[in-house]
Design a protein around this nucleic acid. Sequence first.
DNA 1: ACTAAAAACTTGTAAAATGCAAATAATATT
DNA 2: AATATTATTTGCATTTTACAAGTTTTTAGT
Lengths: 155, 155
Amino acid sequence: MNQEVKQMENLREIFQIMTRRFGLLDKNCCTAGGVDISLVQSHIIYEIDRKHNPSIQQVADALAMDITTFSRQVQSLVKLGLVQKTPLPEDRRIYILSLTTQGKYIATVIDTQMNDYLKEVFSHMSEFERDMVVNAIKLLNESMAKSSVCCTPLG
Amino acid sequence: MNQEVKQMENLREIFQIMTRRFGLLDKNCCTAGGVDISLVQSHIIYEIDRKHNPSIQQVADALAMDITTFSRQVQSLVKLGLVQKTPLPEDRRIYILSLTTQGKYIATVIDTQMNDYLKEVFSHMSEFERDMVVNAIKLLNESMAKSSVCCTPLG
DNA sequence: ACTAAAAACTTGTAAAATGCAAATAATATT
DNA sequence: AATATTATTTGCATTTTACAAGTTTTTAGT
């Protein structure tokens, strides 16, 4: 049994451990500027920030969330003053989502914090290893984008 | 601005995309042998399978779940006939968790399915790239284990 | 133009998941 | 023997979730 086969056997294991650890990282992420939001809400804010004037439907698709659950989450974020809903003049069925000033602030704080966490994790590697890992993750993302079993909604 | 700096800026982005995509993969995972379990329950089963006679506390810690929530999830899995709780003779406060025959069967089915998904994702890469990605993930796991900001409970 | 179908979003409702506080039971410490 | 600690459970209130059914607006069919 060669090394490559051995690695393939453990595929799920290493990915399970990795994703769970990132889940833990993520959990720490969600108190910023006196506001306490949930993990899901932080993902929503991240996605609204990343996309250009997305509709409710578009963000729900990107996060693979049930549209009704998402609708209510957006309502909560609007109540918290972090997100705005603007009706689209050309098609009045559609609402465009955007971050308020406070929402942008929170997004920035969380983003900085997550990057700091990641930098700390990467600080245990050499320059060479760091580059390899970053390239590997990018490669993985590209492969998942090509994959039929998952992930199509994400850009 | 050199390439390395540019990559560091996008650190959170590439990890966010990656973990979300694996989340999607994971979501597909949970119907096996006529039984329908939740994502959380599949993680619990995975962890019980992986550890050697773990206690309730140990698995809850490994998954970073609230112990009371976990206690109830275990009760559900026992009711579903997938998990067994055995009192430990040496210390009768402690219950040891194990999978029933059906639980093991489900664990195997999900494991196979996840590995198939992963193989499909990896099929879009060259042999060389595959090895690089696997090594990178292993490296990342080691770095996260060393990190102070997350992940300590996991082996 | 008129009607039917579809698309985007919301609300009703019921079930499941969550987590804090408090309880129970067993073991460890003093 | 009394007290503290550990492992687990239960009470309870809140949050999250998702199916079904609703409203409103746009698109398609004839």
